[in-house]
Design a protein around this nucleic acid. Structure first.
Lengths: 229, 229
DNA sequence: TTAATAGTGTCTCTCAGACAATATGCG
DNA sequence: CGCATATTGTCTGAGAGACACTATTAA
């Protein structure tokens, strides 16, 4: 029977594009490959999907890899599936199909990433990497990163995805800075504020207490409204 | 070495959501399962991704399955990857991860689907199936279909995806009928025409020759502008 | 002639971009 | 005080929805 043949069994992996906004620019978390192929090159954190008795779903695999390779606080993390990369030559060793994922983490939580001495995890500027030759990253990870960047830039327009990249309370400027980091362009503070206010009226956001100073003048602090019952 | 272990090898399949607009409503092409599990239930056409010497990419697998299970004219077909379904229980027999795809075919080409006597391929009304219990389709194919429907409805707003569902030349009404079939709602003919005209001015569409009668009065016929050099 | 669709025009509302103007805190 | 950012307000143009109105054909 077809199911017993190894013929139909490539390896399935998950790869993670973990993004955060550091110092007004979008950054991605990459490890350094400790062995061939692509030894020494940066690569996305990834791992194989487990099957058999200890089997896990693809989504569970993504969470597990996140936990094992980053030590990030999982409850502060946004995760969604991105795209499945399945070309024949993407791994020179063996046939590997990779289900890529997009993960978002707030700047104030991004520090907790483990500094695994073997892999030397590190945050890289996304724009620089995307400008550089694809071969600066291992495997087809340049394509995956590019795909992730397109996805988040697109979703920014019509979903509250930016909220995953900002602290629990935030000023209008802070939220705007996140948008600017992702889109790589500046927004008019006045016009951005107007869109922001609509979300306030819609009950998506609400005023918090206190003020915070990012620029010259302290600004009002907001938070996301708790989910409606 | 990790790569030799069967531990990391689920089966990878592709499943196809093939959509067309028949008689003003959105339809999906389904086969009837000839054996257990889910014997007799409708299911999406699918197949396993080949590895090894005759290996193929995930995308190639999708095209191959399309060819083998439908006999549709491939050059008249739009295809894009949708989402990867990877829960543990989605196939009761074995661990199968499915990379689902969305395919679109014009009504006038949709007739050529093979009537494989074993599987009884057939077009089903999408809205009815989505309204019915998920268990009316085999496996998790109800979820996959639902995902495909969301995708095409979303893309309709900001991409020229509807052009894949209309003949090479078409009237404004015909294009509008496609939009209405996908969204399940009617559009004001006047307002729809205005959006259409903008695409004309932008050079996306151009006037063709002749007229065509769908309603009482023959209408002008348009076509997509050939891609810019 | 009439029914039905093709096609045009208008009014209003929302929203985005550009940009002027005022407010407030810090050094 | 004076600078930088916060915050408010105004003007304009693009585009969507509602809807009135005219044009053209088949029956």
């Amino acid at each position: 029977m077809m199911f017993d043949s190894d013929f139909s069994k490539p390896i399935v992996a998950v790869d993670l594009v973990i993004l955060t906004v550091l110092d007004t620019t979008l950054h991605v978390f990459l490890l350094q490959r400790s062995q061939a192929p692509f030894q020494g090159l940066p690569c996305l954190p990834g791992g194989f999907v487990r099957t058999g008795k200890e089997g896990e779903s693809v989504e569970e695999a993504a969470w597990r890899v996140l936990k094992q390779k980053t030590e990030l606080p999982l409850d502060a993390l946004y995760l969604e599936q991105l795209y499945t990369f399945g070309s024949l030559e993407r791994d020179p060793r063996d046939r590997v199909i990779s289900v890529s994922h997009l993960a978002l983490i707030r700047q104030d939580q991004a520090r907790y990433i483990a500094q695994d001495p073997l892999h030397k995890g590190q945050w890289y500027d996304v724009a620089s990497i995307l400008r550089a030759p694809p071969s600066d990253l291992a495997f087809d990870h340049h394509s995956i990163l590019s795909c992730a960047h397109s996805r988040i830039a697109g979703k920014l327009e019509y979903t509250p995805i930016a909220f995953s990249l900002v602290p629990p309370t935030f000023t209008v400027s802070e939220l705007r800075a996140v948008h600017e980091a992702i889109k790589g362009q500046n927004y008019d503070p006045s016009n951005f504020r107007r869109r922001f206010k609509r979300q306030l009226e819609d009950g998506i956001i609400e005023l918090s207490t206190g003020k915070r100073r990012t620029g010259a003048r302290p600004a009002k602090v907001y938070r996301f409204s708790p989910p409606q019952k």
